[in-house]
Structure formats: structure tokens, C-alpha cells
């Protein structure tokens, strides 16, 4: 019983950390908007934390470039496993319009494994919340398989 409680808890308490990897701030504003009382993500147990050591879900906005790739990797490494990564917006998914710029590597998945992609320029808050819930479903599948 205790074991199943622990498994249930893992999908009921996603603490997310938001990392701006070089976004134009459009997706950042939408991400923060979904943490406001209007959308009330705390319903799902979601809490926005500022510390990778406490985070379960890494929400990344913006393109990855040569300078911040290593920081992104570092933050990802500092998170406890199991962990989810959600790439937000066109830039996060693929590099977006900055894709061909000389200093840009591309989407978040060039550096770390991404679980859920949220398209849009910018992505909508509803889509972001949906992505977290989808990610949790994926996590649940992994936990049940194990």
C-alpha cells in the first residue's frame, strides 16, 4: 500500500522549474500566466520552484545557443530523477525562427531529452498545463511498467 501511495504521489505532486534559455519572453509570460490565480495550477499540485534540486519538471522556453547549452545541461543534471522536460514554444521545440543563426544550436532536445513539446509562438497557458498533465501521464506509464 505504501509503495502504491508513493507511486501515486509522484504523479500528484509535480513541482516545476522554469528556465528561460533565450526566449523572446513571449513564452515566459505565458508560462508565468498559467501560475497565476486565474489558471490555478495548484489544483494539480503544481508548484513553481526556483531550485532544480526540488524540481520534478523542467519547463524550458527559448532556443538553446552555444553559451547557455552548458547551463541548461547543468540544471537538468541537478534535478533529482525521475524527471520530466517540457519544451515550450516554437523556439524550445526546434529553435524557431532563430534556428539558422550561427550561435544557435536548435531546440532543447539538442542538449537534454525532452518528454513533451508544446508548439506555438507563444504557447498558450492552457497548452502548457496540458503538457504538464500529458507528461505526468507518461511518467505514470513508466512507473507502472517498472
Amino acid at each position: 500500500m505504501f509503495g502504491s501511495f508513493l507511486k501515486t504521489s509522484q504523479v500528484k505532486s509535480p513541482w516545476l522549474m522554469h528556465f528561460d534559455c533565450g526566449s523572446c519572453n513571449g513564452c515566459d509570460i505565458e508560462t508565468l500566466a498559467c501560475l497565476t490565480p486565474v489558471y490555478d495550477v495548484e489544483r494539480f499540485g503544481i508548484i513553481n520552484v526556483g531550485n532544480p534540486r526540488h524540481a520534478d519538471v523542467l519547463v524550458v522556453t527559448g532556443t538553446v545557443n552555444k553559451r547557455n547549452a552548458v547551463i541548461l545541461k547543468n540544471i537538468y543534471d541537478q534535478m533529482p530523477s525521475p524527471k520530466l522536460v517540457i519544451a515550450i514554444g516554437a523556439c524550445g521545440c526546434s529553435g524557431g525562427v532563430f534556428r539558422e543563426a550561427p550561435n544557435v544550436l536548435g531546440g532543447v532536445d539538442k542538449v537534454i531529452p525532452v518528454d513533451v513539446y508544446v508548439p506555438g509562438c507563444p504557447a498558450k497557458p492552457e497548452a502548457i498545463m496540458d503538457a504538464v498533465v500529458t507528461g505526468l501521464g507518461k511518467l505514470k506509464g513508466i512507473l507502472e511498467a517498472s
Binding site: 508513493l6 495548484e42 489544483r43 533529482p80
Partner: peptide
């Protein structure tokens, strides 16, 4: 707001317990 379920703190602790 609606807020989390009443048992949310227990879920949080359960989750933290199973982290590596």
C-alpha cells in the same frame, strides 16, 4: 482559487521520498 486537494502535503512528501 480552488487550491490543491487536502492531502496534497502528503503527496508531496511521498513524491520526495521516492526521488533519487
Amino acid at each position: 482559487r480552488m487550491g490543491p486537494p487536502l492531502m496534497q502535503p502528503f503527496y508531496d512528501v511521498g513524491k520526495l521520498m521516492s526521488k533519487v
